[in-house]
Amino acid sequence: MKISKTIYLFFIPGLFLYSIFFLYPTVSALFYSFTDWDGLSDTFQFIGTQNYERALTGDSVFRKTVGNNMKFMLTVVIFQTLAALAFALIVLKNTKANLFLRALYFFPTILSSVSVAFIWSFIYDPSLGILNQILELLRLDFLQQNWLGNSDIAIYSLAITQVWFHAGQMLIIFVAGLQAIPEDLYEVAKIEGASKWQTFSKVTWPLLAPSATIVIAYTTIQSFKAFDLVFAMTGGGPNNSTEIIATYIFDVAFRSYNFGYASSISVLFMIIIATITFLQFKALRSDRISY
């Protein structure tokens, strides 16, 4: 059936805005990454790959931010995925109590990151904070910490906050994935006398792989983008120990006015995310089974 040519008009408004405010800046990031532009003056010079050389060999802060991002990402991916899966298995059935609990666990997702940042800054506060007070109550005083002020652990404190923020959302995705597994597969497993672990590893897990892929990929991307949380809780400190790539780009661009260099880090950031996402999809796709 022939479709009227007027259909092309439907793309115009969206494509127009998308090109100007998304595609153009994204492509310009690549362009500026080869310049020494400061973001303010009218002129700039092409300096070849100098920015990239600086980022990859000469900038110890950048190296540190990549490391911090990895620590943050791994902590969030491991804890959030395991917690979400474990709790999804418990609240799987659609009983009234479970529906209520799922809604409660999901709740933090609707808050703004600035709100979450304030809540957790208070929890972590060395003198006022609830965390140190609970540790004191439990006579675990020796564990008390300046949770955001100690450069060895601050990034992990932030990662835990991120898990609190988003685990509920991942839990819901797992519930949806688990509920899609046909009931009769479990019955067969039962008749065959499979143990609980066998049922999980041979039935649940292989069929859950698509949701797991989504959860892990989404969590990874989210943890690279945790800009707001870091910005509002520590601002990257102490000693750059919580500086992640996203906040570092902001600092280089808007505090040091080095737009060219910030652009080259943006491009590297893009490459890192694309690589990790690609590898994850490859790794997780390979053990997909269909019954």
């Binding site: 100007i20 405010f21 998304f22 153009y24 800046p25 994204t26 310009s28 990031a29 500026y32 973001g39 991307i221 690279f224 983008k225 800009f227 790539i245 996203a246 780009i249 902001f250 661009a253 808007f254 737009f259 910030a262 652009s263 943006s266 491009v267 950031f269 893009m270 995310i273 694309a274 996402t277």
Partner: peptide, 14 residues
């Protein structure tokens, strides 16, 4: 796939 922080610098000058 593109995180907002990737193009925020050129977007700002735009």
């Amino acid at each position: 796939m593109v995180p907002a922080q990737v193009n925020m610098v050129p977007l700002y000058s735009l």
